[in-house]
Design a protein around this nucleic acid. Structure first.
Lengths: 135, 135
DNA sequence: CTAGTTGCAAATCATTTGCACTTGC
DNA sequence: GCAAGTGCAAATGATTTGCAACTAG
């Protein structure tokens, strides 16, 4: 199953890559840092180096398999791409993340890029605040 | 003049703080990294340590005097706050940054936060792409 | 005077890289 | 078999911190 995703991404099907992919699938909808993935691998007593986790995640990002987010606070997080773009609500207290899409905002952004004559390649919108259980 | 800003921020008026502030004022509208500020200080043969630049910028951020942005690509940039919130168009090739505000988007974000019952404290919207001269 | 500040060097954190070794095809 | 992939340890780059010396109020 996931083998196909790797193959069609032009990557050799190796143990570490499959393991990382399975971790990501097991946490679909979550946002994991490289360290997180590494920890989950250790829990499963899998023998994969942290450096490899970084390498694999970066490769997955390049093939579009995963999305990398740079939220506030130093470290990047990754999530399996579902092909759909979405933005985030991030709780600054507990770290909870809600995803959302707003077509009006998407359209506006395109309009703004046009106004400034930018060729838009990507964008990120993050709303920071306190989630229902933290406020 | 700037002395007042520091005093009202509850910070002692020290040489390093005034110098950093003057650098920021001399580059109003630009987005400088801590290293940038440090380099400008060196150019003026001012004797301020990089660590102090970081400390001062962080203090300024806490008092709301400056805004810190975490764009893609590792290092944070700072800009003097004009009290107005705004978002950014970032050129991924040359680093050019254009600022913009869109009331429709602002309103939408408030609506989204309400829908998810989040107490919004901050948000950042960055559109990445190629600027007119880079595309 | 003395709490707040600073400079410097060493420490930390996330991430990357060099290199000899292993593995997928 | 051989290029691609991996593990480990050392290197990196941005930022932080410990601490003794310094300075604003």
């Amino acid at each position: 199953m996931s083998n196909q995703q790797l193959k069609s991404a032009g990557l050799k099907i190796t143990l570490p890559r499959m393991k990382v992919l399975s971790i990501l699938e097991a946490h679909k909808g979550k946002h994991l840092s490289a360290e997180d993935v590494y920890k989950y691998l250790l829990e499963q007593s899998e023998d994969v180096g942290l450096a490899t986790v970084y390498r694999v995640l970066t490769q997955f990002e390049n093939t579009g398999l995963v999305i990398r987010h740079n939220f506030e606070g130093g470290h990047a997080v990754f999530e399996l791409s579902d092909g759909e773009h979405h933005d985030h609500l991030v709780c600054t207290k507990c770290g909870l993340i809600e995803e959302f899409i707003d077509d009006v905002i998407e359209q506006r952004q395109i309009g703004i890029a046009e106004k400034y004559n930018f060729q838009i390649t990507d964008h990120s919108l993050n709303i920071y605040g306190l989630c229902p259980s933290c406020k």
